[in-house]
């Protein structure tokens, strides 16, 4: 049982790390034989994947950008490129 507790701690730790990097051997072995954990980890991965997919990189609205440069008293370098073209 105490061995399990150690392993569960490691699984929790893994779920707070980079999910794309492979887990340690011990977790790998466990996931291979434990269907519940395998599904659980997969669901966490899918959750992150879905959030990343739908999180569109909202572009900076033009009026927001204009106001920003005005307040900072700077010229938008991207604008001057298009102007010289």
């Amino acid at each position: 049982m105490s061995g399990n507790k150690e392993l569960f701690k490691k699984v929790c730790d893994f779920l707070g790390c980079d999910l794309n990097s492979p887990p340690c051997q011990e977790i790998k072995e466990h996931l291979k034989k434990c269907h519940n954990c395998e599904i659980f980890v997969d669901k966490i991965k899918k959750t992150v994947e879905i959030y990343k997919k739908v999180d569109e990189c909202d572009s900076l609205p033009e009026n927001v950008s204009k106001k920003l440069y005005a307040i900072l008293n700077l010229k938008n370098p991207d604008e001057s490129i298009t102007n010289t073209n």
Binding site: C12, L15, C34, N36, C37, I39, F40, D42, K43, K46
Partner: peptide
């Protein structure tokens, strides 16, 4: 914290395959 003991005692259903068209 997640309850790993509970995860082991429950019957967990897999999610069907993802269709990103549906989630977008």
């Amino acid at each position: 914290d997640l309850d790993i003991e509970k995860i082991h005692s429950e019957h967990i259903h897999e999610w069907p395959k993802l269709d990103f068209k549906n989630v977008s």
